[in-house]
């Protein structure tokens, strides 16, 4: 392991640590081996049914929180939407994740405190539930886009009514 101090800044130490990871894994291709994506999809598919049930529970919790109001409820609502945003797409619920992303952005912009903000939150939750049902029945489809476009208009209407 080599170490030296910076010539113009003696308090700065620069170390070249041993590359433990490289020494263990050796050489490999700079591109992803083609066998990996299908293996990953198969592994995720095996967990998808359990995730679908978990997502149902999260949507029920969101529905209860959407009508609850209050700062604490909004914080919890954001936390759940944030989780859905990060997880849903990987398990085949991309449109649900996209709606959760819109809900997160709406909450971060202070939307729930605006006039008709609660309605837009409920609209997001209803849309997620409808898209989840669609995904369960037919898998991910392109039919979600009009719903997402409509949500975006509702968000604009509440956050920037003068431009909606």
């Amino acid at each position: 392991m080599s170490t030296h101090t910076a010539p113009d800044s003696p308090s700065v130490r620069i170390v070249q640590p041993p590359n433990r990871l490289k020494s263990k894994v050796g050489r490999g291709s700079p591109t992803l081996p083609p066998t990996v994506p299908p293996t990953f999809r198969a592994l995720v598919h095996a967990s998808a049914a359990a995730y679908s049930r978990h997502l149902d529970d999260q949507l029920h919790a969101l529905r209860a929180l959407a009508t609850g109001g209050g700062a604490a409820a909004t914080e919890t609502l954001f936390a759940i939407a944030h989780q859905i945003r990060g997880e849903a797409k990987t398990f085949g619920f991309g449109s649900v994740g996209g709606t959760a992303e819109s809900l997160c952005a709406f909450i971060e912009a202070g939307g729930p405190g605006r006039a008709r903000g609660g309605t837009v939150v409920t609209l997001h939750v209803d849309t997620m539930a409808a898209l989840k049902a669609d995904c369960d029945a037919r898998g991910e489809t392109a039919g979600a886009q009009p719903l997402l476009d409509g949500l975006a208009r509702a968000v604009r209407h509440v956050l920037s009514p003068e431009r909606a």
Partner: peptide, 8 residues
Amino acid sequence: MKAYAFER
């Protein structure tokens, strides 16, 4: 090219 030995 062979794959990295990630198992190690």
